[in-house]
Amino acid sequence: MQEATFLILTALADGAQHGYGIIMDVQQISGGRVTLRAGTLYTALDRLRADRLITVDREEIVEGRLRRYYRLTPEGTEVLVAEAARLQANATVALTRLRPGLAGGLA
């Protein structure tokens, strides 16, 4: 899974958000490292919707403009859980091997 996709799903993990909200949230989650652009965001959202990992939660009109909120589907939650576990397992191995004297990693 691409990092942008992972961050978008993570942004939706604790509730529905609209496009601009996702961009702001992803920026925060990544510590300011990732700023999604609109084209990237909507290409990803289009794909995630087609893959039924996210769905439209509700639509609002704010200042005459459409605002659509997205949320994770049960499948989306499942995929995010699996991906987060995979990343965590990799990170754990890396950290364990980097720590000298542990698990006989460094002679």
């Binding site: 496009g19 961009i23 609109a38 965001l41 403009r65 459409l66």
Partner: peptide
Amino acid sequence: DEILAVLLAT
């Protein structure tokens, strides 16, 4: 319209 709103907001 939705992506346009995001573009204008950013």
